[in-house]
Design a protein around this nucleic acid. Structure first.
Lengths: 207, 207
DNA sequence: TAGATTGTTAATCGATTAACAATC
DNA sequence: TAGATTGTTAATCGATTAACAATC
């Protein structure tokens, strides 16, 4: 009896955490879970978990808890992981290699469908079975292969122009590993995953 | 005339972003910057930038703005980047390799000082000039080399036990790339950098 | 001086948490 | 039924933004 409020970013960031724990419960054969048990394991307030989930529907049963399989299915739907999502990766350096070979997405239907690099020496070579292409082919390939998300693993100096190219090609969301802020007027979602910033903010808490 | 309020996590997360932009200004020879200019470039409200900085001291000049060099120095101090910070990396897989070879930290005095992996086939080999050691040597090495932070790039199943080991060794902060929540009762700061979660939450915003 | 911009207060906005009726 | 746990409201807490006096 919930729904139709505006969903905050904080909630959306927690959904993958819930999904991850629920998938684990599936693996170990647990069929029902309470918000209390989830909260204890994930270090999140149980009331928050209930509120987060209730924003999307009445997924639980009073007095019982949540059916694990059902909740996994629902969260996958909410996150649009019930369809294959194709991702372009730009920047075939060390980090690009690592991510391309990281197949943990696969069970979520997230698939790296194209890899680009501006270095001619890398073009034509393969990573994880995907041929590295020049940036000139990006726009066409993105459209042909119905690629909707992108991962940027190029140096900071190149990130903005790569992002512009991706956005022009119609990409809807970008995960940016380059240590730089990306600016755009278009309606594109940009998430940041900068190792340096994460480490630097960690350093603040040193005693 | 500020100081001595409790600094929120949100502020600490923004400081590296400020630092990054200010370093860029240094490179291109800009000596003074206003909160307005910073805000425009970083997509952050100027009032927020002023408030963030004012929490640590009066770094600006009314009518003028902030001296870039001075502000860089101050933020480095706040983030404790004015001293060398040694980091241990656990997990010498693709991602561990990529991070070890990523030398963008170096100018911030963040240095990977030891690498560990449980795989005997990797032990003894070198990455970026550092010899991979078995986990059995972790505790001793962390103490010997005065290592204070750690990066976890092991599979999810091993992350908790690795974290326990690190915490026992006296590590003060952990950047965890493994897709799992780490639990601890100790006073240890844990930051998360999980690619899968980031991509999954990005998928939510697909239209 | 006039214009610009800080530091800071007050107002707003949003997110988290506690509490509890509903109900399995 | 008794115990457990949800969904939801209200209370709290915290973070962001607007506005402006101080002042370079």
């Amino acid at each position: 009896m919930a729904k139709s409020e505006k969903i905050s970013e904080a909630v959306v960031r927690r959904l993958p955490i819930y999904l991850r724990y629920l998938s684990y419960l599936q693996q170990v054969g647990v069929t029902t879970v309470s918000s209390q048990q989830m909260g204890k394991n994930l270090d999140i307030n149980p009331a928050q978990i209930r509120k987060d989930l209730a924003a999307f529907g009445d997924f639980g049963k009073k007095g019982i808890g949540y059916d694990v399989n059902y909740l996994v299915e629902k969260i996958r739907q909410i996150l649009k992981l019930d369809q294959e999502i194709r991702v372009a990766l730009v920047g075939a350096g060390h980090l690009g290699h690592a991510i391309s070979n990281y197949n943990a997405f696969l069970k979520d239907q997230i698939r790296i469908a194209a890899i680009f690099d501006s270095d001619p020496a890398k073009q034509g070579k393969q990573i994880a079975g995907i041929t590295i292409q020049p940036l000139e082919e990006l726009k066409e390939t993105v459209k042909e292969r119905h690629i909707r998300l992108a991962i940027i693993t190029v140096p900071a100096a190149a990130a903005q122009s790569v992002a512009d190219l991706l956005i022009e090609a119609g990409i809807e969301g970008i995960l940016n590993f380059a240590p730089t802020t990306i600016r755009t007027e278009k309606e594109v979602r940009i998430h940041y995953a900068d190792v340096t910033s994460s480490l630097q903010s960690l350093a603040y808490y040193l005693t």
